[in-house]
């Protein structure tokens, strides 16, 4: 089954974040708590962790681009 990962709300002030970098690549095994990617907002670098066990299927956000709260960021194949 494919689970979607959406951009969580991290800042009380802003809903648009700078997508910094991916820490997992498509095909990588991911576990709950693994850091998937990091974003910058309001001078803070935040790590976003996986809520699923599975395999990262797609990266749907690009490094260096703006991403909004709720945007589809990735999909994870869970068994």
């Amino acid at each position: 089954m494919l689970k979607e990962v959406h951009m969580p709300k991290l800042s009380p002030k802003s809903d648009q974040y700078f997508f910094g970098s991916w820490l997992k690549q498509p095909g990588d095994t991911v576990k709950v708590g693994d850091v998937l990617f990091e974003v910058e907002t309001d001078k803070v670098i935040s790590e976003v962790q996986s809520q699923e066990n599975g395999i990262l299927k797609t990266q749907d956000a690009q490094e260096g681009q703006a991403t909004n709260v709720g945007d589809l960021v990735a999909t994870i194949e869970v068994s």
């Binding site: 002030k13 001078k43 803070v44 670098i45 790590e47």
Partner: peptide, 22 residues
């Protein structure tokens, strides 16, 4: 300030930043 700086007479003397790790 709203950018989380500290100022005196609107002149900045302190900036702040964070990172979250594990």
């Amino acid at each position: 300030t709203s950018r989380n700086d500290l100022t005196i007479k609107e002149k900045k003397f302190s900036g702040n930043a964070q990172y979250n790790h594990q």
